[in-house]
Structure formats: structure tokens, C-alpha cells
Design a protein around this nucleic acid. Structure first.
Lengths: 147, 147
DNA sequence: TATCAGGTGGGAAAAAGTGGGAAACCCCAG
DNA sequence: CTGGGGTTTCCCACTTTTTCCCACCTGATA
């Protein structure tokens, strides 16, 4: 399971280390796409299969209007990229994706169960702050549903 | 059952001994997450399976499409970590979790039935104090209602 | 006192992250 | 075509962090 938070630098050659803890599960090649919220999503190839199948299935339960679905798919597929790690686990994030979320010198890399998210550091801390305000409620839910 | 209170030091290498009494039940690997109140939760893998299943509504593979679900998952998974004890039962608590509850040189490690909580020492004594006052009031109340 | 278990500390090796040189590749101007 | 400039790729090296292993201390016990 992909979990945890890592802050890594982006060097002059645009390289970012995938956290070692994520490498085994992600493999050598994977898919990076614009995400929802101010971030990027990274899916394993397997997960991407699932996701893309679901998204492009017009019978799905997402109640999209056709036009909406088309434009959404354009968004997810059209701007997706397959990336490959170098021999020591670094990847290159395409410029257009970096620009989308304002990445410069560092990236926050977050494991969210079966995907990885990439944030610029400031957005990530904002996101965290916002989330921790809801945290008590969320945790209540967690604790409350336990049994 | 996980019960009892232990104050252990965090050494320069960030290591903390799990109380020997907890080790058998927790096993060698377990999950540590932000908790409710100013503390961290430690779940056994088994408990975590249950919890994470609840969290990510497992019959919806596209849970990432819903904003509140996204931030919820981001919060629980992004700030969780799988930790493994060394050969003599110590673990490393990730920095981002230490910061969250202000851990420095020591930690209060508390057994709470089927999970373990980690507190910074001061918060824990405050918590205890508050709880014991409450307990007396509660007892009064309970006693009063009973007869 | 000797022994054992639990907790603490620290050296050394391994792994992870970061940086940079140089070959290989690509693209365009001449 | 051909050569130069920029980019990408591959590889090696440095630094920091993590991991592994062993030693010590203390309190409880026999």
C-alpha cells in the first residue's frame, strides 16, 4: 500500500527521486496525469488500466453528460504521460505537468493507498492545514465506525 | 489486550522502544497514523486493513472523483506510515508525525484496548488530568442516576 | 551476588537522495 | 549533408540517512 509523505528536490535536470518505499509497488514504468485538486496523480500501470477502463466506459455510473465525459477524458488521457525511472529510481516530470501545479525546486510526494500524488510544497502544506481542521471530524468518523 | 502507560526516550537516531508488553500483539510491522486529539494511533496490520477498507469505500474504484473523499483519503493515507521494529523492538516515527504532536526527546506510549496511542509527555499529563476530573464527574453522574 | 529482561546508546555498513560530467541524440541553420 | 548548440541519457561520485549489530546500564528475580 502506498502511504506516507516525502519532500524531494527537483534538480536542474528536472529529476525527482521516487521515494524508495514506493518503488517496488510502482515498478519501473508508470503513468502520471493531471490530478484533481492542485496536484498530479501517479498510477501503477495496473491501476491505470482499471481507472481508464472505468472512465471511458459510457455505461458507468458516473452520470456524466457525454460532452462532459469527453472533455474529462481529454483532460485525463490527453495529458497523461508514461514515465520511466532511471537506474536509481528518479523520474522526469513533463514540463506541462510541472507548470500545471507550479513545481519548481521541490515536490511533495504523497502515497494515497493505490496512487501517488505530487504537490508543490506550498500547496501541500495548505492542503494539510485545511485537512487538519477537518481532522477531528474525520477521526471521529474513524473512531465511531470502528465496531 | 493493549493496556498500560509507558514513557520512553526518543534517541538521537529517532528510535523509540515499543513497550515489551505490546510487542507480541503488534507484531513486527504495523501502521502509525495521526490520531484523534493531539496524538498518534498505532494499528496492527489487521486493524489497519479494516480501517482502510472503511476509509476508501471499497466498492467504488473511482473514489478519487469525489472531493471530500479525496481529502479524507489523503489525510489518512498520506499521513500514515508502515513501520517495522528493529531486532530489539524499536521503531522510527516519521518526522512529519513527530512534528504533528510535538515529539522531541520522549514519548508517552499508551495501550488503549485494541490500539496504541503515542503522545508527547506534556500533552499526555494534561490529558490524564483532564480525563481524571471528567471521570469523577462522570462517576458522580452515573452513581446519581443509578439509584 | 549472579542472571535475565527491558531499555538506551553508539559504531560501522548499507541504502537513499542529490549532484554533475560526458557521451549520445536531436534539431535546425548553413 | 554537415556541423554546432542544446537536450537527454547514462554513469559515477558525494553526502546524508537508515539499518544492522553489538555493548552497556538498570532494575527485578532467584
Amino acid at each position: 500500500m502506498l502511504i506516507g509523505e516525502y519532500i524531494h528536490t527537483i534538480d536542474e535536470k528536472n529529476r525527482v527521486s521516487m521515494p524508495a518505499k514506493f518503488r517496488k509497488e510502482l515498478g519501473k514504468k508508470f503513468i502520471i496525469t493531471p490530478g484533481l485538486g492542485n496536484c498530479l496523480f501517479i498510477f501503477t500501470n495496473k491501476e491505470w488500466e482499471k481507472v481508464s477502463k472505468k472512465l471511458s466506459d459510457s455505461d458507468n455510473d458516473l452520470s456524466f453528460l457525454k460532452a462532459d465525459q469527453r472533455s474529462f477524458n481529454r483532460y485525463m488521457f490527453g495529458r497523461a504521460a508514461e514515465v520511466e525511472t532511471d537506474s536509481i529510481g528518479r523520474i522526469l516530470i513533463p514540463d506541462f505537468l510541472k507548470e500545471k501545479i507550479g513545481l519548481k525546486n521541490s515536490a511533495a510526494i504523497i502515497g494515497v493507498k493505490d496512487r501517488v500524488e505530487v504537490w508543490n510544497e506550498e500547496s501541500w502544506s495548505q492542503q494539510k492545514e485545511a485537512a487538519s481542521k477537518q481532522a477531528e471530524q474525520l477521526a471521529e468518523k474513524l473512531g465511531g465506525e470502528k465496531n
